[in-house]
Amino acid sequence: MLEIKNLHVDLEEEEKTILKGVDLKVEAGKVHAIMGPNGSGKSTLSYVLSGKDGYEVTDGTATLEGADLLEMEPEERAAAGLFLAFQYPVEIPGVGNMTFLRTALNSQLKARGEPEMSATDFLKMVRDKAKTLKIDADMLKRPVNVGFSGGEKKRNEILQMAVLEPKMCILDETDSGLDVDAMKLVAEGVNALRDQGRGFLVITHYQRLLDHIKPDVVHIMAEGRIVKTGGPELALEVENNGYADILAEVA
């Protein structure tokens, strides 16, 4: 599904290297988690994969089902099936949530040469999916993320994911700012999609989210590299002992 090889990334504005050779392969239907201390490059990885400005790839490749992601515009990556659930979802005053969702879905369908969805079918589909995420009609009507609480913003990200049905989802600290109930809702949303053979890369600081979304593989990232890879037990080790032991071990 997603394959990253030897990825090196600099910040464009300053002479600073953030990623120093990341190798990662996420298979269809699998959940990979990335954990790591602050500043290890986790969010940078998610931004580079989704095509945000401000980063320069100096070496390496990233492909989605064999297609070169790094050559594509952000909207092309989305249409190809990549989705980033933002750590800080952006507020967009003046654009209604429904208009946004429908424009996004139809843009992707169009880019893939598939027929656009009718307004009626779309409305029904979104209402059903919103209901399972406990997103009410008012939130759908309001401008994108404006006046949403932290938890509402994160649930709105998962709603977008459910509506757009991407092949490969990156969740960037989706658990931050969520209470236990909200986290369960988010996890249910993720698990429903996972069963359909989609790939997940879950970036998190805590074991908590991984109680609900059971990862197949856990990676530890430090100083721009993946320094250790293991099973779910690795996340528990971090939870109990912190990163110090692991980092000392690989240093």
Partner: peptide, 15 residues
Amino acid sequence: DEEGLFYLRARGIPH
């Protein structure tokens, strides 16, 4: 707003 623009594009909406 560049942040907003990237957010929309990341959801598949052309530039």
